[in-house]
Nucleic acid binder design. Sequence first.
DNA 1: ATCCTACGATGGACTTTGTCTAAGTCAAGT
DNA 2: ACTTGACTTAGACAAAGTCCATCGTAGGAT
Lengths: 139, 139
Amino acid sequence: MSDLLERLRGRGWRMTAQRRVVAEVLDGDHVHLTADEVHARAVERLPEISRATVYNTLGEMVTLGEVLEVATDGRAKRYDPNAHRPHQHLVCARCGAIRDVHPAGDPLADLPVTERFGFTVSDVEVTYRGICPSCATTA
Amino acid sequence: MSDLLERLRGRGWRMTAQRRVVAEVLDGDHVHLTADEVHARAVERLPEISRATVYNTLGEMVTLGEVLEVATDGRAKRYDPNAHRPHQHLVCARCGAIRDVHPAGDPLADLPVTERFGFTVSDVEVTYRGICPSCATTA
DNA sequence: ATCCTACGATGGACTTTGTCTAAGTCAAGT
DNA sequence: ACTTGACTTAGACAAAGTCCATCGTAGGAT
């Protein structure tokens, strides 16, 4: 069931009720939750879980490469459990809705060596912005 | 001299000492400053300028399309005076240094209609990440 | 099964980044 | 120079996140 949980367990993670709940919340719906949203949902199952623990756990999962951090607006970071399939994000400029998208081509290859200034470029993050269908109809 | 200042004046902006200083600071070095860095530099020239004014002024310049907001990390937004030449950003994952870069091709065209989910896509933001030459040498 | 202990969790203080408001100030048109 | 509405100010407030001292417990050792 919880694929994410299995992967974490396989890495020798010490399993606690708190970590299990955070992993389950993240892996549940495939939406992109903020840390506070994760905390809110975790509290429903484990009322005494603290914010610090949620932040710590999310941070560890990011370090382990099992979860991605996405900063689509200047506000709270969002956490994306879909770390093992490369993808980009499409964000509604009005309501903030986020969809995973898969552009054609490799954006990394589009950056010529002359435009790399000696950097060792290892990653590229692409954020498309627009208006989603439901925001478009409600004027 | 201050191209940015000229453009703002041409739009009927009420010119004040504070706005002039903010525009000059931004247009001076072509680095990507945070709001607080802008404030720190502005204070050197106009000691009584307040943080709120810097935030207001930057926000207005963004609304007018004369300055771009870039959120390369989850931290403070940075302000980019180079709004009239389309470009993307290359960020050092270690020290946070930012360079403007010009990828080949149009990233917007790389998103097939089938991957747009009914969104009206109007903009794309690309952030390349890597290690800059000076961080690479200092282990 | 029980004990130990290092790792994890807790909550509250603290920091950073940004917004808001009420009151004072000033640029620019008349 | 006067007037007025736009601009600025200081400080309170808010949101997002980090830090720390202390307490609790998972899981190996016995």
